[in-house]
Every structure is written in structure tokens, then in C-alpha cells.
């Protein structure tokens, strides 16, 4: 039997199919990991989702209202403690926030160091001066955003997405909105898998490099197919809903049950938020 020719060179740049496949599998792995974390045993995982939504919302409000750097830093420590008590890997939790922060908030905070008027703190070459007020403003922004993002991530990592959505009903979010969000979440994964399969089948038939024009054509064709598939799917799903009695006004129900420890922790979180607002006023 003829053997396959030896690999003569390794391609340095991955083509668009390979990149898309890598991104898709990364997204799917991430969601699987988040779901596993939400099912682990831990403090926040054991609480009623409504308590978590309200408690974390109270802490988020406290972060926004507080005018003291020390108090916001204190709330960040609270977020870290909650993550630790909920068995979330600390390295992952911290990195997830701080690695992305410079790209988004950092870009906005950077000019504040230099353009905010105030007493000079550090003199830099080229006549640039970091002012005390500028440093304070930028630090406020960075700390506020990182603490808020950490708290939001905490909620999502410790609660199955379905629980988060249903808990929104305590905030008087309409049932129809919750139903639509739930279905969107459910079908994103189906379309993700479909896209993955489409790209895999494409990859198995590609030899060598594709030209940029071919890549563009292929992506446009994939997007078109996906759109027509999702249109067909949506009309079929609507029929399936009608078949089981849906008449335009969805009725949903949660199976949440408040236990004493839910009240206790809910109270503690709201109290911590109130204390932070008072201390940082």
C-alpha cells in the first residue's frame, strides 16, 4: 500500500475555516466549562437564583454609588471571597476580568491620566504629566468596571443560564421576554453546532490555501445557508409551540423555593451593599 507523502512544511497562518472552527470549539468549551461550574457545590450555587440576582444587583448598585476607592476595593474583595466560597478557580476568575480590562476600559481610562487638570503626581518625558486627579479618576473607572464585571461573572458562573433568566421575573421582566431569551439561548447552541458541522465538512474538502475572494464567497454562502436554516427552524418551532397549546400569551412557571439560608444570605448581601453605600457616600 502506498504511504502518504511526508509533511514538507507547516503552514504558518491558519485559513479562515480553521480559525472559525477553533473559535467555535472554544466557545462551546467555554459554555460547557461555565455549565460545569454552575453545577458544582459551592456557596452561590446553593442559593436561590432570585436571591443571587437581587443580591448581586444590590452590590452592583453599591459599586456605582460609592465615592470611595477603598470601599470599591472592599467590594472587589467581597466578590473574590464569594468566588472562593463558590469553588470558582481563582486564577481563572481574576484573569478573565483583568486580561480583557486594558483593551476596553483601559483605552478609555488612559487619556484621563493626562488630560484631567489637577496637582501633578508624576512628570513623564515629552512634557506629559500625570495629575493626582487624573490618576484618581482613571483608578475609579478601572476599579468600578472590574468589580462590576467580576460580580456579573460571578452570577453567570454560579447559576445555570435558565435560572438567571427565570430569576429576572422578580425584577418584573415580562414572561414573553423571558421565554424569548430562553429560546434564543437554546437555539444559539444548535446553530453553533450546525455552523461547526458546515465548516468541518468544508475543511475536509479543502486542499491548499484559499484565496481571500474564495474565503469571502464561502463565508457569504455559509451565512446564507444558516439564515435559511434558521428561518425554516423558527417556523417549525412555532408550529411545535402551537401544537402544545401556545396561543400568543406564554405562561411560565418557576420551581424556586426560598429556604432560611436563602433569606439569610440574601439579607447579608443587601446589608453589605447598603453598608458600602453608606461608607462610600
Amino acid at each position: 500500500m502506498d504511504s502518504l507523502p511526508k509533511l514538507t512544511s507547516t503552514r504558518k497562518r491558519r485559513n479562515v475555516v480553521e480559525r472559525t472552527l477553533a473559535d467555535l470549539s472554544h466557545t462551546m468549551e467555554q459554555s460547557l466549562f461555565a455549565e460545569e461550574l454552575a453545577r458544582q457545590k459551592g456557596l452561590l450555587q446553593s442559593l436561590d437564583p432570585r436571591v443571587k440576582v437581587l443580591g448581586i444587583l444590590a452590590l452592583l448598585l453599591a459599586v456605582s454609588l460609592s465615592r470611595s476607592l477603598a470601599v470599591i476595593a472592599g467590594l472587589y474583595v467581597v466578590a473574590l471571597l464569594l468566588a472562593w466560597a463558590s469553588s470558582i478557580p481563582m486564577g481563572f476568575f481574576i484573569k478573565r476580568v483583568w486580561l480583557l480590562l486594558p483593551f476596553f476600559t483601559g483605552m478609555i481610562a488612559l487619556p484621563a491620566f493626562f488630560i484631567t487638570p489637577g496637582p501633578p503626581l508624576v512628570q513623564l518625558p515629552l512634557g506629559l504629566v500625570i495629575t493626582r486627579t487624573g490618576a484618581q479618576t482613571a483608578l475609579f473607572l478601572l476599579l468600578r468596571v472590574s468589580t462590576s464585571v467580576s460580580l456579573a461573572i460571578l452570577l453567570v458562573l454560579t447559576t445555570p443560564w435558565n435560572g438567571v433568566l427565570k430569576a429576572l421575573s422578580v425584577l418584573r421582566v415580562p414572561d414573553a421576554f423571558i421565554l424569548i431569551l430562553g429560546m434564543t439561548y437554546r437555539y444559539i447552541y444548535l446553530l453553533l453546532h450546525t455552523t461547526n458541522d458546515m465548516f468541518l465538512s468544508r475543511q475536509s474538502r479543502i486542499i491548499g490555501r484559499m484565496s481571500t475572494a474564495d474565503e469571502r464567497r464561502m463565508i457569504a454562502a455559509t451565512a446564507g445557508t444558516l439564515l435559511s436554516k434558521s428561518l425554516h427552524l423558527s417556523s417549525e418551532v412555532y408550529l411545535a409551540m402551537q401544537s402544545r397549546g401556545f396561543r400568543g400569551h406564554p405562561r411560565t412557571m418557576d420551581t424556586f423555593r426560598m429556604r432560611p439560608r436563602d433569606w439569610l444570605w440574601g439579607g447579608a448581601l443587601v446589608l453589605a451593599a447598603a453598608l458600602a453605600v453608606w461608607l462610600g457616600r
Partner: peptide, 22 residues
């Protein structure tokens, strides 16, 4: 197609859907 039939985000919600609409 079970992906058409199962439109809810969890198994419990799926089975409860029809009785709730009723």
C-alpha cells in the same frame, strides 16, 4: 426533528410547557 420539538431551555420547562399553556 427533536430540535424543533424541544424549544425550552431545560427539560423541566419543556415538559411543563403544554400543561402551563392549558
Amino acid at each position: 426533528d427533536t430540535d424543533v420539538q424541544l424549544f425550552s431551555p431545560s427539560v423541566w420547562d419543556e415538559i411543563a410547557f403544554a400543561p402551563l399553556q392549558m
